[in-house]
Every structure is written in C-alpha cells, then in structure tokens.
Design a protein around this nucleic acid. Structure first.
Length: 534
DNA sequence: GACAAACCTG
C-alpha cells in the first residue's frame, strides 16, 4: 500500500497500514475528526497494528494510544496484551492482564487468558502460567481449547511434560494443535525420541506435525532420519521443503540442495525467499554460477523484491562465483540494503582485490547511517590485507576498537597478521600473535608461517613451526609450510628431515578439496598444495 | 472484531 491517505476510507486504511508512519497518518486524521479517542472500535485499530509489528517503538506507541482511549473495552486490552506477548519482552503483557484482574474497567475473557498464557510461554514463565491456569479453572475457561492448548505449550516449553500430557489427556475436544503443542515442546527441548513416540501415537497429524519432526531430527543432527520423515510425508508444503533444504545446506551437502530444489520445482511447490536464499547460498559454495543466474532470473521474472536476505544472497553468490561486476550491479539495484548486504559487497570487493572500492563502499555505508558490526570489520580488514593497505588497515583496526567498541576476534587478528606478513613486517606480526592468548591461535601461527615462507625468513619459520607443532602435533599444516620454506631455499636435507618427522609421527597431509562449475555441471577435485615432498 | 502451532535463510 502506498502512503496516501486520500485513496481509501479511514478504517480500511488503518487496517491495511503496513508501516508505523501510515498508522501515525491515520491517527492524525482520526484525531482531527474527533474519532480518536472517543470511538473505541476505531481507536483499537491503532493498537492492533502492534500485534503483528511488535517492535519497541510501535509497542510504546500502541501503549500510549491505549492510555488515551476514553472508554477502553476488552478488545483494547487484549490487543495490547497480545502485542506484548508477541514482542521480545512478553512479561510486560502480564502487567496489563493483572490490571484487568484487579478490577480494571473490564474483566479478562478467554482471549485475555490465551494471550497472557502465550506471553508466559514466551518467557518460560511456568509459575505465572500456573497461577493463570488456576484462575482460568475458577472462571470455567480452563478447558477452552485455545486456553488449554496454550497451557500445554507453556508447560511443555518449560519441561513440565507431566503437566502438559495430563492436560492433553483431559481435553475432551483436543485437536491436532493440542498434540502439536506437546510435540513441539519435546522438539524445542531436544527430546527427539519422546517426540517420535508421541508422533506415532497421535490420532491426528497435519503438515505442521510432520514439519516439526523434520526440524527435530535436523536439530539433533539426524539428517537421514529427517529425510526419511520428509520422504514419507503425505503432503509437503514450502516449509517442509525449506526445512530439508536447510538441513542439507547445514551439512554442506550443497549438490543435494540443488537436486532437492529441482525436485521441488517438479512437484510444483512455489519457493519462497527462504528457499531461494538457501539455494543461492548453495550455489555460492559450489561456485555454480549458471544455477545462481537461473535463480536470479526466476527472482526477476516473478517480481520478487531484492531486499535484505535475497539481495545479500545474490551479491554473495555472484562474488563467490567470480562475477564481481554482477555482484556490484545487484547491490546497486537492491531495493533495500541491510548491514549484511553492505558486508557482503565489501567482502566481495576486497576478495577480488578492489581494496580501494571496498573502503569507499565502507565510507558510503557509514554516511548512509549504518552501524558497522564485527563482520563489517572482517570485510574491511580483509580488503586492506589483500591490497596491502598497511596504514588503512591499522586505522581501521583502531577505528573498530576505539570508536565502535568491538572486541577484536580471531578473524580480525588474522587479517592483521596477514597484512603485516604481506608487507614483510614479520617481527610486528610475531609480536601480535605472541601477545594474544587466543583459542584457535594456530590459525594466526599458520598465517605467520606462510608469511615467513614468502619472505624467506627461515629462522622465524622454524620458530613458528615449532610453536605450531606444540599446539597440535598431529596437524600437518606446520610441517607442510616448513618443508615448503626449506624447499624454496633449496635446503633439501631439511626438507627430508621434516618428511621423516612427519612419517614417524604418522601425520598425513589431507588434500584440499575444491569445486568448479563447467558448462552448468559442478565438478569436484582434490588439490595438493604443491607440496614438494610428494 | 480476534485467539493456539512450522521453516528463519545471507
């Protein structure tokens, strides 16, 4: 809906509002015409907006609307309770619920109970849930199907399976939602075997029940079981497909992601943005430019908006598949960018060696008012390191810590070690690595070792290799790099010594693995590192 | 005038 108030009567305009500014417009209009705050029915619509948009700003606005309504009814209360229940601070819903109980102008009804209980489920407030349960029983609505189903959810989520189950068994007209409430609780709390038992016992299942089982198996890392549930489903919806596709993506089985996507097309299930993002991500991992372009075409053809996730996934796909120009093009034409979209293009530019453009894009991002996060600085520092921008890199590192208060992580140090190593400041790089007591420090040592090799600094290389081997005697990286260092200097005796040592310790060099798309087919190949030993 | 439940991806 466009932001013009004049095209529609005020009530439908308010009901259809898709942004807070449209609600403000409606509010102003209602105020001018005297409908707000006297007409409760219409004024309530201003509150209802917060139910599906429960961000803090909208919520406090809705609350202020609520306090101004001349004669609030149960709908006014219930909408606001429901909005809070959907928010990130669901416990606030209970203040209003209590107001109703303590003789506010209206008494709570079964809707108030349902929403208040939903809030309890939201913050796992089982104590509060029990109290509300007691009150509901007193008022004779304890077995209302909505109230009871939400109670099962409250008890289940907090691990009170006994309560949840006995309630389930005492609901005369229990339905599939009642079963699913307990099923989803088992799955959320990681009891996949209990979930399976219940699933087999259920006298009624819907597509959601099956989807719960898929996601349950996936979060327990049981991909094959998830797939077998998926295969035996009587009816799959887009969520089922997304769930299984996500499962294969998490397992890095990207070729199967693409196969599943094709199956999905064959069964004529329309992909949504979640599907497309996952599939684009698989293309990015596989370097499958052709498939990625096909999906881009699909997005354009179907008028799917390239904002947020979709834009980022496209930028990432193009840049990882080697087409930085198209990545930039998508980025520039994105209808809406978020921080990840910016991060993604800066990473791409940096990786492709466009350090200067990467830094310019970073400045542009700051000017547009985006707050950089830790990923942004990984991107920026990577760009500096690739392009050997020593001073810029130092400046950015300082900016990150001093101005944005971001604690440098291993990735940031890694970029700095790379950068210092690239420009030959090995002593400074060494100092950086030695003064940090970091987990995963071996990544930094490895990076430093490769810098030593590139600059032919054997003395430091030996020292670093020893450090690396102290950290993990079974890791081949240190040996390989050290032997390559000797080899580059034609010190063959030393190369052989390293080789003997590796053999004695039974360390094997694992070959790297890489993939490339040729004529629309993804090929996988193993890559040695040009290790002279072999 | 409405309510409970799924995938959450870059």
């Amino acid at each position: 809906m466009s932001g013009t108030l004049s095209q529609l009567p005020i009530l439908p305009f308010t009901e259809m509002a898709s942004s807070i500014s449209q609600i403000h417009q409606a509010h102003a209009h209602l105020l001018k015409t005297g409908v707000f705050p006297n007409n409760t029915f219409v004024s309530n619509k201003l509150i209802s907006f917060a139910v599906s948009n429960p961000d803090p700003i909208t919520l406090s606005y809705a609350h202020s609307v609520f306090t101004h309504i001349t004669d609030p009814n149960s709908f006014s209360y219930n909408s606001l309770i429901r909005a809070y229940a959907n928010s990130r601070t669901p416990e606030n819903a209970l203040f209003l619920f209590r107001q109703m109980l303590e003789g506010g102008p209206v008494l709570p009804d079964k809707y108030s109970f349902t929403f208040a209980l939903k809030a309890c489920a939201g913050f796992c407030g089982v104590e509060e849930g029990m109290q509300i349960h007691g009150l509901a029983l007193k008022l004779g609505i304890g077995f209302d199907i909505f109230v009871a189903n939400t109670l099962i959810h409250v008890y289940g989520k907090s691990g009170h399976f006994g309560f949840a189950r006995s309630l389930l068994d005492r609901i005369a007209d229990r339905d599939v939602v009642s079963w699913n409430a307990l099923l989803s609780a088992y799955i959320e709390t990681g009891f996949i075997r209990l979930a399976r038992g219940l699933f087999d016992e259920m006298d009624e299942r819907n597509v959601e029940s099956w989807n719960f089982m898929i996601s349950g198996y996936l979060s327990s890392g049981l991909l094959e079981e998830a797939k077998s549930v998926f295969d035996s489903m009587p009816l799959k919806d887009v969520v089922s497909w997304n769930a299984i596709i996500t499962g294969y993506a998490h397992a890095s089985r990207f070729d199967e992601v693409l196969e599943l996507f094709e199956d999905m097309q064959r069964e004529e299930v329309r992909p949504d943005t979640c599907t497309l993002v996952n599939v684009l991500s698989a293309c990015a991992h596989l370097g499958a430019l052709g498939q990625g372009e096909w999906i881009h075409g699909y997005i354009d053809k179907n008028g799917i908006d390239t904002n947020g996730f979709i834009a980022t996934a496209l930028v990432d796909m193009y840049s990882k598949c080697g087409n930085i120009d198209k990545a930039v093009n998508v980025f520039r034409n994105a209808s809406k960018k978020d921080i990840s979209t910016w991060n993604s293009i800066i990473v791409g530019l940096g990786m492709h060696g466009y350090g200067e453009t990467a830094l310019e894009t970073f400045s542009e991002m700051l000017m547009e008012g985006f707050e950089p996060n830790e990923v942004t600085f990984i991107a920026v520092l990577t760009a500096c390191s690739r392009s050997r921008f020593l001073n810029e890199g130092r400046k950015m590192f300082k900016l990150m810590v001093d101005d944005y208060g971001i604690e440098p992580a291993i990735e940031h140090y890694g970029c700095m070690v790379d950068l210092l190593g690239q420009v030959g400041l090995l002593e400074e790089a060494l100092e950086l690595v030695e003064t940090r007591q970091l987990k995963e420090a071996h990544v930094l040592w490895e990076s430093l070792l490769s810098a030593c090799k590139n600059h032919g600094n054997v003395k430091m290389a030996e020292y670093v290799a020893r450090k690396l081997l102290e950290l993990n005697p079974q890791d081949s990286a240190g040996y390989v790099q050290l032997s390559n260092t000797y080899a580059a200097l034609k010190r063959w005796d030393d190369v052989l010594n390293v080789r003997k040592k590796m053999k004695a310790l039974k360390v094997n060099k694992e070959p790297g693995c890489s993939m490339i798309e040729v004529n629309g087919v993804v090929h996988e190949f193993l890559a040695g590192e040009g290790m002279i030993l072999e």
